[in-house]
Amino acid sequence: MITKESYQPAVATSWTGRIDGTDADFLRWHQVIKVVDLLQAPLPVLAPNEKGMVLLGFASDEGVRRNKGRTGAAEGPAALRKVIANFPAHFNAHTILLDAGDVLCKNGQLEEAQEVLSEAVKAILTAGYLPILLGGGHEITYGHASGIRKYAQKQRVGFINFDAHFDIRVPGEEGPSSGTGFWQLAQDCKQSGDTFNYLALGIQKNGNTRQLFNIAGEEGTTYVSADAFHLNDKDTLFAAIQHFLLQVDMVYLTTCLDVFAAPFAPGVSATAYNGIMPGGLFLQCYRAILQSGKVVSADIAELNPSLDIDNRTAKLGAALIFEIVMAYCGEDLSL
């Protein structure tokens, strides 16, 4: 249940930016986005010819703290909004873009915040919108994906994670963290009799213990290492992606910004000096997943503005959000 203690509605005045004009060809996101309050009213009903997207922040880094990382990701949603506000609106009048505000994690109550997030995601999906979540630490995964599973019922849900880490740790004394989300989902799938469909892309051998590789194997995880991106191994990457997509009906897509090389993503808890490059082969993979038509919800995780340099990481995360929106609207990203 969404409560006023765990939720902060969006504020229209927070959406500002450059104005080149008010005709359709001049518009930017801050000029077309509308704010909604999930506590006050249901989302607007979409007409048959309309597509709708809802931005929702998860202002939490409690999971990062529990995982002994560098906190600050709770400010990620605000930083992402600031960048995407000035994006040009390359979509038509039949596209509805809403900001539903932030789910909050107060007083370290991560499990409660994740439950609220799952209910919000389910409500957005039920209303026919595409949820685009703004993190926040990667503890966003468990709440986000749980909401998708509630909505999906018996449809086959697949989890695709661009990440240097499996995030499949067994919870420790402090409980679930930013590194346990996929282990939690694996247990939930077992309990409900569902297959745990998990594809991890960009995994670093120097970022995961042997135990984590063992757990990933025990849970049936499919993964492709960062080497495939470094060595331009397109065949391996696309074979893994296409095979995975054939096994599922809908996809939860999450991108942990620490999958990228540190010069492009310095603003994360755990930087990767040898992370993948955010252009070329990565974009081909990302777009192939988005254009499959199976992505029902997506998020960006681990942006820590306090560690960022010249907003590089925020701009990279925002660029991925732009990719998600354009693909959902059926817009051609080629020039």
Rank of each mutant, 00 (worst) to 15 (best):
D23G: 02
W29Q: 07
W29C: 07
I33W: 09
I33G: 12
V36D: 00
D37V: 01
P44I: 03
P48G: 15
N49H: 11
K51M: 15
M53Q: 02
G57C: 08
R65Q: 01
G72E: 06
A78R: 13
I96D: 02
I96V: 15
D102I: 09
C105R: 03
G108C: 10
A120C: 14
K122D: 10
K122V: 11
A123L: 08
Y129D: 01
P131C: 14
I132K: 01
L133F: 13
L134W: 05
G137P: 02
E139Y: 05
A145T: 05
R149T: 04
Y151Q: 09
K154P: 01
R156F: 09
V157H: 05
H165I: 13
R169E: 11
P171Y: 06
G175A: 02
S177P: 01
G181T: 01
D188Y: 06
G202E: 00
K205N: 14
T209P: 00
A226S: 14
A226L: 04
D227M: 10
L231R: 02
L237D: 04
V248G: 10
T255Y: 03
D258F: 06
I276D: 00
R287T: 10
I289V: 09
P305F: 12
D310N: 13
G317M: 08
F322M: 13
V325F: 13
G330F: 13
L333N: 07
